[in-house]
């Protein structure tokens, strides 16, 4: 399998604070990569660097062989990286339908994801199409954030803490949705603090501590490795 997204030794700063200190990951086509780590270890910064929100000062990011290290976020999105961000960040004053509409690109006509397909994946969104996104429940907003990312017809979907603050039932729904996307061959990067949820879903995991990858393995191996679990994830 060929590499879809590769992050090569990036160093990212927020002002003076040195967050990512030489971090490298890669995602293959059709693969689901889990990124685990405790709070404040740089998981979301990694996503912000990939999306061009906070470009790295050193290092390189390639997507489908093209250098996107300093590209504009909107160009990165158009190249095929879909973002479902931490905290969901749906557009609160827009309706559910409008949230999906603004993410639709013009060249997308006839592609895999359109309103109909998103509503099939998440029937709740179809029922609430006219409602303001700000008035949805947390779980519905999460579905909307996933649906909005899918509307850009990505070849790589980045999900940052999709289980955050949701009831177990809803987490189950989101997990099922990820499984069905994975079955279609969509590459998924799943950033999670909820390790139990992530290891059920992904093909491979990277553990990040202090801005570096400290462990990389299959989910089964990670679960068996008590040292990594205790030192880097804080679960015994």
């Amino acid at each position: 399998m060929s590499t879809l997204l590769s992050v090569e030794d990036i160093h990212t700063y927020y002002g003076d604070s040195y967050v990512l200190q030489g971090l490298s990951i890669h995602v293959d086509e059709g693969e689901t990569l889990g990124i685990l780590g405790r709070n404040g270890m740089g998981k979301t910064t990694l996503i912000n660097s990939i999306m061009g929100f906070v470009p790295p000062r050193r290092g390189a990011i390639h997507f489908r062989g093209e250098d996107i290290t300093t590209a504009n976020s909107f160009d990165i999105s158009k190249m095929g990286i879909g973002l479902c961000p931490q905290g969901r960040r749906v557009f609160p004053t827009l309706s559910v339908r409008e949230n999906l509409l603004v993410a639709q690109q013009e060249h997308d006509v006839g592609y895999r994801w359109d309103f109909k397909e998103v509503y099939e994946l998440f029937p709740r969104l179809g029922e609430r199409a006219g409602q303001r996104a700000g008035s949805l429940s947390g779980g519905e907003q999460q579905m909307l954030a996933v649906g909005r990312a899918l509307m850009t017809n990505p070849s790589c979907l980045i999900m940052d803490e999709p289980s955050e603050g949701l009831a177990p039932m809803i987490i189950q729904d989101i997990g099922n949705a990820i499984q069905s996307l994975k079955a279609e061959g969509l590459a998924v990067v799943l950033v999670e603090q909820n390790a139990a949820f992530a290891v059920k879903t992904v093909d491979r995991v990277c553990v990040i501590t202090n801005g570096k990858v400290v462990h990389e393995s299959s989910p089964g191996e990670l679960w068996a490795n008590e040292e990594v679990r205790r030192n880097h994830l804080g679960i015994g």
Binding site: M51, G52, F53, N72, S73, F74, S77, K78, G82, L83, P85, R89, F91, P92, T93, L94, E98, N99, V102, A103, Q105, R148, A149, M151, T152
Partner: peptide, 16 residues
């Protein structure tokens, strides 16, 4: 309106 609500996120889904 999306660009007003959250400009960074708007860029993240391909809005220039």
């Amino acid at each position: 309106r999306a660009a007003v609500d959250d400009p960074e996120m708007a860029r993240g889904i391909g809005i220039n």
